[in-house]
């Protein structure tokens, strides 16, 4: 396990600088740590704590509230099948049961090769494409049983590498602009 790399520590400082209070950067920095390691390592949570001016326990406690933040390792691909009302009406539970059989794991588990973690998701706001499946928060749908096999096959073979980065990578567009309208108030931290 490791903490944030020097490059990411630098990125983290520029993210912290976007907020009037350091602690506001806590969730963005957790995403940054997940993008690096795939999940939140102890060392990364300690780094985030230092950067945000809170204890590591506060970081863990806050992260544990949120579904997207993982404090245990997950697979390279987190496959989330939505089963909420619109997807359920489109047969989501049949797709989910099939997914469990196809991957040989239950919801919440990771395949032995570390490739797939299966999740049952709440509504992902893709209801016009029900049954909706997210892989590392990239959308696919409608997905039926055969479509699920094709999707996981494409992921395993690397055919979707450009579209679907490894778990934790959320936003590949970097913000380059610092606060400009606020320059005069810089350093006036609470």
């Amino acid at each position: 396990m490791s903490g944030l790399t020097p490059e990411n520590l630098h990125k983290a400082e520029t993210i912290v600088a976007l907020y009037p209070e350091r602690r506001s950067a806590l969730i963005p920095l957790c995403h940054l740590a997940q993008a690096q390691e795939g999940y939140l390592t102890e060392e990364c949570m300690e780094d985030v704590a230092l950067l945000c001016g809170v204890s590591a326990a506060e970081v863990r406690g806050t992260a544990s509230f949120y579904d997207m933040l993982h404090t245990e390792p997950v697979g390279r691909y987190v496959v989330a099948v939505c089963t909420n009302i619109a997807c359920m009406l489109a047969g989501a539970y049949s797709v989910l049961t099939h997914a469990e059989e196809h991957l040989g794991i239950r919801v919440g588990q990771t395949t032995h090769d570390g490739l797939f973690t299966l999740e049952e998701a709440e509504c992902l706001a893709g209801c016009d494409k029900a049954v909706c499946v997210q892989v590392n928060h990239r959308f696919f749908g409608p997905v039926d049983r055969e479509g699920f096999d094709r999707l996981t096959g494409d992921l395993a073979s690397g055919r979707l590498d450009d579209e679907v980065p490894h778990h934790g990578v959320l936003n590949r567009v970097e913000r380059t602009h610092e606060l400009e309208a606020h320059r005069e108030s810089e350093g006036a931290e609470r």
Binding site: H137, N171, V173, E174, H177
Partner: peptide, 16 residues
């Protein structure tokens, strides 16, 4: 929303 990965990328690009 965090689950909108593409949305986050496009919004960030738009702000830039």
């Amino acid at each position: 929303r965090g689950e909108f990965a593409l949305g986050l990328e496009r919004l960030t690009r738009a702000v830039e």
